[in-house]
């Protein structure tokens, strides 16, 4: 049994496996299938200041080895989260992290402030990379200036762990990572979805109501892995890698590329218990290769 404990920024995790925002609900949707407290951390749905209905149906298109989504941050708002959802998840023995999104910087700040005082929420993931909303979202994450500005202002307002989720839809992701590091981000997570499109040739129409959407799943893994490797070399804060992880071998590739933790997204839809299998698989890998701790293989690419 290797030591899987890892500290990432201000977070203390029992293992490096987290579930990605928007793909694991609030965690409780999965508790029929497994003991969700075994997961290192659960990043809940994208949460905004006010209630959002999201985009019209259809919001999903299956693609080769992946999927496009255009959910558009449907959620009932941060106050609803605090009053109705927090009580149902606060006793789960894992790190519950809230993914925060907004249309304006003020939205981000107020939402983060409201989450400051929840004892059992050790951190937030700042989503400056959602490709599916008209205002805000990815717009903040695709320029160094606006990414730095939103992180700076939220950093002043939020005292616990601040993970910043980066968009791959940029020319140089390392620059953005450095910009948010300079403003006090505790860690960066990447990648959010890649902007894509699907067309129904029979109907001569786009499949998604929004025409474009975010691509995820194994199709994006090589791009995600390359970006994690680049960012890990560019910043000193920890990097959390995600994009197309389907099994323990995929997860270990990200860790070798420099990630201190990994997130599992789309794979939860195919196997709701995949995160547990990845945790066990990482442990087996460490034992098999004679490593005592997960920290021995972070960035250990030869």
């Amino acid at each position: 049994m290797a030591n899987l404990n890892i500290n990432i920024g201000k977070l203390q995790l029992k293992n490096p496996v987290l579930t990605a925002s928007g793909t694991f609900g609030y965690g409780t949707e999965y508790s029929d299938f497994m003991d969700i407290s075994r997961i290192g951390g659960i990043i809940v749905k994208g949460t905004t200041l006010r209630d959002r209905q999201g985009n019209p149906y259809p919001r999903m298109a299956e693609t080769p080895s992946g999927m496009l989504n255009a959910v558009g941050l449907q959620n009932k708002g941060v106050d609803y989260f605090i009053e109705n959802i927090y009580p149902t998840v606060k006793d789960v023995d894992t790190n519950i992290i809230v993914n925060v999104s907004g249309s304006t910087i003020e939205d981000y700040i107020i939402t983060a402030e409201k989450l400051n005082d929840l004892d059992r929420i050790p951190g937030i993931e700042l989503n400056i990379s959602c490709p599916n909303v008209k205002e805000g979202g990815m717009a903040f994450g695709t320029s160094c200036i606006s990414a730095a500005e939103v992180v700076k202002r939220v950093r002043r307002a939020y005292k616990n762990d601040l993970m910043v989720k980066l968009s791959p839809n940029v020319t140089d992701i390392s620059e953005i990572a450095r910009a948010v590091e300079a403003e006090g981000a505790d860690s960066v997570s990447l990648i959010n979805t890649l902007l894509g499109m699907a067309i129904d040739s029979e109907k001569r129409r786009p499949i998604l109501s929004t025409i474009t959407g975010g691509l995820s799943g194994p199709a994006v893994k090589p791009i995600a892995l390359r970006m994690v490797w680049q960012v890990a070399q560019a910043v000193k804060i920890p990097v959390i890698g995600l994009g197309g992880i389907m099994n323990a071998a995929d997860a270990i590739e990200f860790i070798l590329a420099g990630a201190s933790g990994i997130q599992i997204g789309t794979a939860n839809f195919i196997d709701p218990t995949v995160s547990i299998k990845v945790i066990d698989g990482i442990n087996d890998y460490l034992d098999r290769h004679g490593f005592k701790s997960i920290t021995d293989i972070i960035g250990a690419l030869e």
């Binding site: 609900g25 949707e29 999201g54 149906y57 999903m60 999927m67």
Partner: peptide
């Protein structure tokens, strides 16, 4: 019969108005 990804209420892809 909306198209679905997760089937268990976690992805919000299958909504109807």
């Amino acid at each position: 019969e909306n198209t679905m990804a997760c089937g268990i209420g976690s992805c919000l892809c299958c909504v109807t108005d």
